[in-house]
Amino acid sequence: MKYRKIVIVGATSFIAHNCARLWAEQGAESFTLVGRDVERTTSVGQDLRSRSSAEGFKVSCRQVGDFCSPGEVEDAVREICGDGIPDLVLIAQGSSAEANSELTASSGKLSASLALNGISPLLFAQAFANRMQDGDGQIVIVGSVAGDRGRASNYVYGAGKSMVDTFVQGMRHYMALNGRNLEVSLIKPGPTFSPMTAELVGSMKLADVRSVAEAIVAGVRRRKKVIYVPFKWRIIMLIIRLMPDFIFNRLKI
């Protein structure tokens, strides 16, 4: 199946960019890229144009200055959908750049992290869903394995991600109850090589972004509900979720 219109929110994300490349190579006809920096977002668009195999390929960029502002998000989504309802929206912004201890030491940072990783993707997801729910498109949000169980090392980031998880569950339930065909899915990457994790090179095994993107693209095509990438994280997180406190509380993870 060829996508006619794909929207990527947080398009400069290395993971999202690599997914977009695959879609472009497979013949997707148009992209709308949403980012906070025009120059960088445009650069992603140029790359997609170079790789696209579609005739009459179109790519446009939409800058959003503050990803957590309901007004800005609503305006951007209205404008994007005004040009035609997308058949696929990937929402990828997020950051775990700051250590948990830094986030817990400052209420300002704590709130900003929850807003970026939790609220912002949901503002976008709901705004798109409101316009897409009559069709059979897809909304895909990048969550994280970090949202599966709160851990001392990253629970602020994890809390934002688990908020997304709960929200997606609810959206799916709503669509099912109301006989809607809009598919809302959640991606849960394990540690993957990207600018967000570059500092961990050497201290942790990071998955290759290309294979992560391939798994995401394949899962999205099959309209899967939750996509763990790489797959082994489904099992690892199952064990971690089921682990009783008396063991879990001794693990430094």
């Binding site: 290395f14 650069s43 140029q46 790359d47 170079s50 570059a198």
Partner: peptide, 19 residues
């Protein structure tokens, strides 16, 4: 200084034969 994330193909110009 690792160039791993600078992996975009910015333009292919078939007429000029440049990338």
């Amino acid at each position: 200084i690792w160039s791993a994330f600078l992996d975009s193909i910015l333009d292919i110009d078939p007429a000029a034969g440049t990338v």
